[in-house]
Nucleic acid binder design. Structure first.
Lengths: 339, 339
DNA sequence: GCGGTTAGTGTTATCGCTAACATTTTCACT
DNA sequence: AGTGAAAATGTTAGCGATAACACTAACCGC
């Protein structure tokens, strides 16, 4: 490239020259330093405007040692739940004046998770949010590079890290008790895959509610969160339609599969079998029948996790070990009825 | 903090000292420079390992003037389509060795879009992908800071920017012709909101298919992509059930709402009315009845957009004005039948 | 009117790395 | 052994910002 052909973007020194001050004064104006005369400030501001100057955040990050960027590690982010969580995090971070750098994992294993975290740490993020509701992800925090503030969303409340999560156990209890209150003798369960903390929490809440009421606890059917796995479970439930009257399904997508299987087999919902889901995805209200479910407030989880993280960054305490639990909410619709 | 209390992380000079070489040699090892003796290389690598050194990417970005980070601007990323597109982009970027910095917009307007783009440009991203399928977003590219490579996904093929998109028009044609081939006299349409390019493309494909076949074109009903808006449209269609026999709905979520409304009103699908959706969300197969729809290959869109973007970055041509169109695919299920 | 504060500004050093150039070592070939 | 090119390594100078400190001018009180 010939000189002059490509005009590189102006730097602070260019602004300084144009305004007739030193670059440090430009820096002071940009950082709202008090000791700048009003007249000087406007002169600098005019020069900035004139040249179209934008400050180089990379250079700034090098010397200040913070980037105003947060790292987020996610998993399966095309699903409604994870997508909403990440969205909530992103919104909250931006509201707090932070950028978000994002890594989405294909599979969760300790190695992949550690890579992702190092990846972000290398990039100079000020803190990390890990959305990884799997048991195997927990250990990834052990290798966190020297004291980067971090918070786990839907993670294991173990070790050195703060955790923000929805009260899965209580949500499952609400679902189960709702069905028991309708007069069902017991409640079957289609669970999420093993190793997932949310799946485990929902199993625990369901089991506890049954045991508290002194009811028998059927063996749970296990799905993988997908509608198809719900469909498979639904076929098995349909085959037992004479003894099954109520089912708590660990998420709405699987509940859709269950619904489909029951419909196909001529089992009426809710007349013969009542169904409760979990998540309250936007579609749930328009299932046939509209799905009774448990709502998770993903926005609150996102805001909460950023709150905790920024507090850690602010205090310099990398590991605050806070616990924030967001309540789950029962949503009544038409997929459940009295026995 | 007392000295020694907080040991700051090692820098290149520390590694150099430990290995008995200059920092430049360490840099060469890290960057796979050819002119390093094998024995020296292993000595440096050992020192790196010993000290747990990780290079500072911020300092590196300052001098190299590129960050190996791509910016992504998204919108409504809790919906399946946008979420899948962003996911595809993220995967493709990471496969190419790039980080992804992400901004999700609440609403699309030129100003907000421009802010987001400047936000990313300031951060030093090497290129930008904008997923903004709205007409109003197109102008945001006009103000792109001096020649940052950019590509629009599902954007308007106008102006200076490359565009990658699914062939919406052809997808809609496929849906409409399928229904016509089944013997339906005409096909109604529940469209997406105005201002959305995808909505417009699908209307165009539908309208063209009808006109080509010499059929009357009913006035489209307009939704906002949500199941609820589909439900509202479905109520109106149910009221006209004697003249409506086939409906092409612009996305699967609205199709679910339509299905729900028709079911509620006792209109049988597909016996009385055939329905075709768009997107092929994972749930579509388990609707009642399973939804015939048009599949979009979001992974291909993501990969394609990163391909184009990296090519622009590689050649230094900020604006290549490429056009990449990903075909749509027809998926037959049970929500359509012959008249 | 002079020491002492305080606002306002400039100068220099530095963050941790790579680029460019300088220097030394190695080694093939006469 | 001597030469010259190539390979391997070192030294210096930035990248573009902020931090730390130095300096000047204005103003205070006695």
């Amino acid at each position: 490239m010939r000189p002059g052909t490509e005009r590189r973007s102006p730097v602070m020194a260019d602004v300084a020259k144009a305004a007739g001050v030193s670059h440090q004064t430009v820096s002071r104006v940009l950082n709202d330093h008090p000791n700048v005369r009003a007249e000087t400030r406007t002169r600098v501001l005019e020069a900035i405007d004139l040249l179209g100057y934008r400050r180089n955040l990379v250079a700034r990050a090098l010397v200040t040692r913070h980037s105003r960027t947060l790292g987020v590690v996610g998993f399966n982010t095309t699903l409604y739940g994870p997508a909403s969580t990440v969205d909530g995090i992103e919104q909250a971070a931006r509201a707090a004046g932070y950028f978000v750098s994002f890594v989405s994992l294909r599979s969760i294993d300790t190695a992949g998770m550690r890579d992702a975290i190092e990846y972000l740490a290398d990039q100079g993020v000020d803190g990390i949010v890990v959305v990884a509701p799997q048991r195997s992800a927990a250990r990834a925090f052990d290798s966190l590079p020297q004291g980067i503030p971090a918070v786990a969303v839907e993670g294991l409340p173990v070790g050195e890290v703060s955790v923000v999560s929805v009260d899965q156990v209580d949500g499952a209890r609400l679902a189960t008790e709702h069905l028991l209150n309708l007069g069902h003798q017991t409640v079957w369960h289609v669970s999420g895959p093993s190793g997932w903390l949310e799946a485990e929490g929902r199993i625990e809440g369901w089991r506890t509610a049954l045991e508290t009421a002194g009811r028998p606890t059927p063996e749970p059917l296990t799905g993988d969160w997908s509608p198809r796995s719900g469909y498979v479970a639904g076929r098995r439930l349909a085959a037992m339609a004479d003894e099954v009257t109520a089912v708590f399904v660990a998420n709405d997508q699987m509940a859709l599969g269950v619904l489909r299987a029951l419909t196909e087999q001529g089992v009426k919902v809710p007349e013969q079998i009542s169904i409760v889901g979990f998540d309250d995805i936007p579609e749930a209200e328009f299932f046939s029948p509209p799905l009774t479910t448990i709502r998770q407030d993903f926005g609150a989880v996102g805001r909460g996790s950023i709150d905790v993280l920024l507090r850690q960054i602010g205090t310099g305490e990398a590991r605050l070990r806070e616990r924030l639990v967001v309540p789950a909410e029962f949503v009544a619709r038409a997929s459940t009825s009295a026995l």
